[in-house]
Design a protein around this nucleic acid. Structure first.
Lengths: 214, 214
DNA sequence: GATTTCATCTTGACGGTGTTAAGATTAAAA
DNA sequence: TTTTAATCTTAACACCGTCAAGATGAAATC
């Protein structure tokens, strides 16, 4: 359907934009911050006129939403890799959950630019939640993990959803506060380092795990 | 020093700007969102030329930092009011801490625009933390409250700072996720409502309170 | 009171921004 | 080969943050 790549210079019509645009936008965001991503700069970086992106994205927010989705794809990836690192079955489900939490925080700290676009309100509120989106997939992954910890199958119970909420709040709170500078600029947290904070916080959360179960 | 208010129309030179600018910026942010706050619109709203704000603020970020400080002032206010609502002494310190958490979340949900500016990285990273700032004051308030719960005085111990971290992460995580639409657009959380979520999450956090103390 | 000083505000301009309309180019469909 | 439809460009619009230069007038000085 799409003859992917030609020789080198200019593609036939003009390459497979869209992918290139998302790539350049992400690159620019991670180099100079989300705030300084402009459609025109992205277009220029893709060697294309300022209005060209409008044939692939409704507007700037739509482009950023695509960047966010790419971010969620990567987050989903590291989470999946982490989970499978803890074995397949029900062995050490407890440790696996903490591992997921650590993976979440590490991702945020290592890719703050992605993390920031991913949770922009104008992105999340754009379209109704698409179950195919990487954001939703990562979300389902978390739900499934907690179901395993609590020994549950099928449709997630309210109890599970409460645990999901709790776990998500903790890792997201830590990530946000660190990335936004509230913790990373404050003593003693700055000297303790994120890794230690994440370990403490995820460990502390799972001592009473289950709420009433065990 | 400052004859505060004249009659009505135009002040002498031109009113006490700065305060008006911060006010208008906050008003605009809460009406249309932080993203659509522009120096020029704020200036216009204050009936002043586009370049006038530059005699009171270094740049746009500096203005937003002032808005953020105003936000922290209000947060500090509701937290203080909440705390004193739980009595003065060591009676019900436990409940007071949960009350503080609820106050935090409620503030974020009721004033999402403020909440968003308050934790913008370019704001936090602007100047070195000023202990006089309302942000720091609210922070110290939280530390003191947790010290009371743990029956400690003087310089806060590492144990206290860990508890501060934990409490802050939870309420900030919930606030962020809700305000940014990650929870408020997702079932079953949307139908449960923030209030219920906040109560569960803060309650769940304090069951094992103290880590090892009791 | 007259004069100087100095903070404040305005005017006007600069380059950069998101977005749109109208037209050119060219791959794919007919 | 002709038609169609997708893609990209050009040109323009209004708006943005920021700065330099000058006007204004309150407060300090004489």
């Amino acid at each position: 359907m799409k003859s992917a790549k030609k020789e080198k210079k200019k593609a036939y019509h003009h390459g497979d934009l869209r992918r290139v645009l998302v790539e350049e936008a992400a690159k620019l965001a991670s180099r100079e911050g989300v705030e300084s991503v402009s459609l025109r700069r992205v277009a220029t970086a893709a060697r294309v006129s300022p209005a060209a992106p409008y044939h692939h994205f409704k507007n700037k927010s739509d482009l950023l939403a695509a960047v966010a989705d790419e971010g969620f794809r990567r987050l989903h990836g590291t989470m999946a890799r982490t989970a499978s690192g803890y074995g397949k079955g029900k062995e050490n489900v407890e440790g696996r959950l903490q591992g997921l939490g650590l993976a979440y925080v590490r991702f945020a700290v290592r890719h703050p630019h992605f993390f920031r676009v991913m949770f922009r309100p104008e992105i999340a509120r754009a379209a109704e939640p698409d179950p195919e989106s990487w954001g939703q997939r990562a979300y389902f992954q978390l739900i499934r993990s907690i179901q395993e910890v609590m020994g549950e199958e099928g449709e997630p119970s309210d109890e599970v959803m409460r645990e999901v909420l709790y776990a998500w709040c903790i890792v997201h709170g830590l990530s946000s506060l660190w990335v936004d500078g509230a913790l990373s600029l404050e003593e003693p947290y700055a000297s303790w380092g994120v890794e230690a904070l994440a370990e403490y916080v995820t460990g502390r959360a799972s001592v009473g795990k289950g709420g009433g179960k065990k």
